[in-house]
Write a protein that binds this DNA or RNA. Structure first.
Length: 942
RNA sequence: GCCUCGGUGGUGAAAUUGGUAGACACAAGGGACUUAAAAUCCCUCGCCCUAACCAGCGUGCCGGUUCGACUCCGGCCCGAGGCACCA
């Protein structure tokens, strides 16, 4: 074999062999245990980035590992092909989104192949192909008929200049990214999937996913947000004004008193998780879109102006939560359901329409947000809960406007005087916690649960509320006013209404040959949207909205089982392959994508299409790839970023970076933070240049070695060189032996020791073998944990062990006059080395498959490494005659002792106490206690 | 703002889950080989004191539990991911 490591040649040959032999084609075989390993499919953005390389290397490592362990492995790949960037690119470069997408996929497919991934390419799919999306249109129509899909209006970001809907990403500081116009909220009709119908199951099934990271399950639990609370009805004081007969302009129907929100006997509904604080409610707040607010706006221009103002800004929750809390009274009042007090109704921008009831009761004393709002607008603050520890203490009353604050002698909230008022100056977290009721009439002295039960029972008796569980999870709006997506299969008929497209007319094909400017081209294509009603045959129009692209990515994992099925969404091959045994993807998908995919699995299960309740048994969430940033700031404050490849970094004598200059002009640049590789920060490193320079194995090895998969990975050019050096060393050492010592045993069976117990192993080789097997045992443990960085360091230790010990081969020199002993010594050395390299090749195969494939061919000609079996440590090789123990005195490390491995408790303690250094620290005192941790340490407490 | 995760040498990290902190690497420094450079090989490498050893200090900060804490508990600071129309 070659002495020099030539990755380009090795990788080409290995990939050719895999491709010619169809080695990674997955075939259903009910007699074999299957393993479905899936990495999140890429958006075809143009080129592979480092995040992809990391994701797909992790998946490939797991796939090849399982394959070597004998599983029937499926590892597919495809394209998440619909999405916004294609439309942006289309506008920029004047190409059709379809053509752009297909070209990108073609380029990226070649890049993936160059990485040497063990993928069954026969199963490749692209979500923008009609043969794929026709089945989600089919499922949509089924769910529509089941009532799991419905239509309602919901707010979107509206750009009033471009007259178009913007994605949240396209809203920057409240303005449209192209027009710069202030964005408004606008209500438009959309289709919703009733994911809330599955909320309970999506929550409870998380407990049956032990293979998911706890972090992800916690995030999903919080997102679903099941809460136990109480619905409270506040009867509305009748309006002093007569109801107006008409709603706003253009409306044909007069609003009913209920729609106006002020009829006799109407009540304002709120939901609260803190009914125990109900006696402390001092006002109620409604969303700007609430009927009560809209009704008030008709008579009150100030309220109308405020509601207008609330329409400004984006729709994202982060926007809503960080904006300044504003509100105003609408001049209406409600009656407190228990004490009959009149409470003012406010309209507030922090109350969200469409979340719960669009109205909240405000208890400023016990809710931080209400507290800030009440202080700002001088609303009464009425404490009714004190900490449990105050029970039984003297509580003195202090007045504050119309309400009362309580002060315990030793644990008082901060009170102060401002002008003539007594003000609760600072929010005190203790008052947000559960406590005991005070100044609450009959409920005084009750704890949280007692008050919760008593108050909800009283409300129920009065018909003004009851206990209720609620979810934070909202139904999933799937309509998008965009072109490059799957058409929503609905036809609007003037007489029959919204009619789902019949199964035999599917798919509704998206026209691909279009030009894009602002807005969806579908709306300008009458020949496409004009059609006939499937029910009555009259002229009708197609829906021009498309699906959220999360819909495609919610079921692709299942379609890989049978990507060519033309008669059904899924066929019985899905029963064999599903569920996915290992799913790998970025942590950024922890909530939305993974929740939607779980939801779809249940929808498909209920259609009889998928087995089991959950799609992904094991989940690995990989961290991001980050790199340093380099920039210059121009005089107007604009930042210009430079690619790390174009920058020279100077370091001080410790290796700390102290400055950087641009290669092009030699002038200094600012060293920025280490951030996620991105186009905007220009800190991406192109994987292609890496593969071209060092080969795929180096790229893969570096990615696996630099950090454990779930942590972020810092890019390092020198780290890559280090990975390359290791592979070069591995190749060099292995070839020396294969061409040298091993060549003396043409039949490799002579080197392959079956029975080490009866093999004449030289003592100088026994220790090397022990280190190899200790490292292998650790590596196997780490492999099971998916901690590939320490698997690599284990492999490095094995190579170092095979290479370190001078006496390993040199001992032969002393024996050159004793031919029999010499032959025995040489066989002993060669057998240990042969075993060592055969372990190394198999251990590293999942991570660096090309080089290991080639090494194995030379080590064991005639047997494919995939058939060689996974290496397992030999327990008998791990044994040691004596072990080293640490001796602590009072928990501090003071000495080390060596004892026979068989030494008992008393013998170890005696040895430890006799130790000279230990004696110095005991200073003749009697040990109070001696703690012995077997195989680890002795701690002497004096 | 809310939810979640993280913070260990000059750097990436390890520590089998309460038992020797820094494995394995990278960088840096020194040396060998070389006419020279590259490549390769060998040595040193947490901080502090020291000629050296010993001792002392040390896992973001403050406090607690324990014979013993990177690991467990409470509080704080900083960073990252998500927040429902980026994927």
């Amino acid at each position: 074999m070659e002495d020099i490591y030539q990755p380009q040649q090795i990788e080409k040959e290995a990939q050719q062999a895999w491709s010619d032999g169809q080695v990674f084609k997955a075939v259903e075989n009910s007699t074999r245990e299957k393993f479905y390993c899936l990495s999140m499919f890429p958006y075809p953005s143009g080129r592979l980035h480092m995040g992809h390389v990391r994701n797909y290397t992790i998946g490939d490592v797991i796939s090849r590992f399982q394959r070597m362990k004998g599983k029937n492995v499926l590892q597919p790949m495809g394209w998440d092909a619909f999405g916004l960037p294609a439309e942006n690119a289309a506008m920029q470069n004047n190409v059709a989104p379809a053509a752009w997408t297909y070209a990108n996929a073609d380029y990226m497919r070649n890049q993936l192949k160059a990485l040497g991934l063990a993928i069954d390419w026969d199963r490749e799919l692209a979500t923008c192909r009609p043969d794929y999306y026709r089945w989600e249109q089919w499922l949509f129509t089924r769910l529509f008929k089941k009532g799991l899909i419905y239509k309602k209006t919901a707010p979107v970001n509206w750009d009033p200049v471009d007259n178009t809907v913007l994605a949240n990403e396209q809203v920057i500081d409240g303005r449209g990214w192209r027009s710069g116009a202030l964005v408004e909220k606008r209500d438009i009709p959309m289709y919703f999937m009733r994911i809330t119908a599955y909320a309970e199951e999506l929550l409870s099934e998380l407990d049956n996913l032990p293979g998911w990271p706890e972090q992800v399950k916690t995030m999903q639990r919080n997102w679903i947000g099941k809460s136990y609370g109480c619905e409270v009805h506040f009867p509305i004081e009748p309006s002093p004004l007569a109801p107006l007969p008409m709603a706003g302009e253009g409306s044909q129907k007069p609003l009913s008193p209920r729609e106006r929100g002020w009829g006799e006997g109407d009540a304002l509904k709120v939901y609260t998780t803190r009914p125990d604080t109900l006696m402390g409610a001092t006002y109620v707040a409604v969303a700007a879109e609430h009927p009560l607010a809209l009704a008030a706006a008709l008579d009150n221009p100030e309220v109308a102006a405020f509601i207008e103002e609330c329409k400004q800004g984006g729709t994202s929750e982060a926007d809503m939560a960080t904006m300044e809390k504003k509100g105003m009274p609408i001049g209406r009042f409600v009656i407190h359901p228990l004490n009959g007090e009149k409470l003012p109704v406010w309209v507030a921008n922090y109350v969200l329409w469409g979340y719960g009831e669009g109205a909240v009761m405000a208890v400023p004393a016990h809710d931080e947000r209400d507290f800030a709002f009440a202080n700002k607008y001088r609303l009464p603050i009425k404490p009714v809960i004190v900490p449990e520890s105050w029970r039984g203490k003297e509580i003195s009353a202090m007045t504050f406007s119309e309400s009362v604050a309580y002060e315990s002698p030793d644990e008082a909230p901060t009170l102060g005087v401002e002008g003539e008022s007594l003000v609760w100056l600072e929010w005190d977290e203790r008052f947000a916690e559960h406590g005991i009721c005070v100044k609450s009439g009959d409920y005084d002295g009750k704890d949280f649960q007692e008050a919760f039960d008593a108050i909800s029972a009283d409300l129920q008796e009065k018909g003004l509320g009851q206990k209720r569980t609620q979810f934070r999870l909202r139904d999933w709006g799937i309509s998008r006013q965009r072109y490059w997506g799957c058409p929503v299969p609905i036809i609007y008929c003037p007489t029959c209404g919204d009619v789902p497209v019949p199964e035999d007319q599917l798919p509704v094909v998206l026209p691909e040959d279009v030009t894009i400017d602002i807005g969806s081209p579908l709306k300008k294509m009458p020949h496409w949207y004009q059609t006939t009603c499937p029910e009555c045959g009259a002229a009708a129009e197609r829906e021009t909205d498309t699906f959220d692209t999360f819909v495609e990515s919610s079921w692709y994992y299942a379609r890989y089982a049978c990507p060519d099925s033309s008669t059904s969404m899924l066929d019985n091959r899905a029963q064999y392959w599903l569920p996915v045994d290992q799913y790998i993807g970025g942590i950024e998908h922890a909530i939305l994508h993974l929740l939607y995919a779980r939801f779809f699995h249940k929808l498909m299960r209920d259609e009889g299409l998928t087995p089991g309740n959950e799609p992904f048994i094991n989940l690995l969430t990989q961290g991001m790839v980050v790199a340093p940033t380099f920039l210059r700031e121009s005089s107007d404050g604009k930042k210009h970023y430079f690619n790390p490849a174009d920058v020279d970094v100077s370091t001080d004598d410790r290796g700390r970076p102290v400055g950087a200059t641009l290669k092009a002009d030699g002038q200094p640049v600012i060293i920025g933070g280490t951030e996620k590789m991105s186009k905007s920060k220009n800190n991406g490193v192109d994987p292609q240049s890496l593969i071209d320079l060092y080969g795929a194995d180096t790229a893969r090895l570096f990615m696996m070695f630099a950090a454990p998969p779930d942590q972020s990975l810092e890019w390092s050019d020198t780290g890559v060189e280090g990975a390359f050096r290791f592979l070069k060393r591995l190749w060099g050492r292995a070839s020396t032996h294969i061409n040298g010592a091993f060549a003396h045993y043409p039949n490799r069976k002579d080197l392959h020791v079956q029975d080490w117990a009866n093999f004449p192993l030289e003592d100088s080789h026994r220790e090397v073998r022990r280190i190899i097997h200790v490292s292998l045992k650790q590596a196997n443990f780490d492999f099971a944990k998916h901690q590939f960085n320490t698997v690599v360091s284990g492999a490095m230790k094995i190579l170092n062990a095979l290479n370190d010990d001078k006496s390993f081969w040199d001992g032969a020199v002393m024996l050159k006059d004793q031919p029999e002993r010499l032959a025995s010594f040489q066989l002993s050395a060669a057998a240990v080395a042969f075993e060592g390299y055969s372990i190394l090749a198999r251990l590293l195969y999942p991570i660096a498959p090309h080089i290991c494939h080639a090494l194995w061919q030379n080590l064991v000609p005639g047997i494919d490494i995939l058939e060689a079996g996974w290496p397992v440590e030999d327990e008998s090789a791990l044994a040691q005659d004596s072990i080293e123990l640490v001796v602590q005195v009072n928990g501090k490390l003071r000495s080390k002792i060596t004892v026979p491995a068989s030494a008992g408790k008393d013998a170890i303690e005696a040895t430890a106490l006799q130790d000279e250094t230990v004696g110095k620290f005991i200073e003749g005192k009697n040990p109070k206690k001696i703690i012995l941790v077997p195989g680890k340490l002795v701690n002497i407490v004096v």
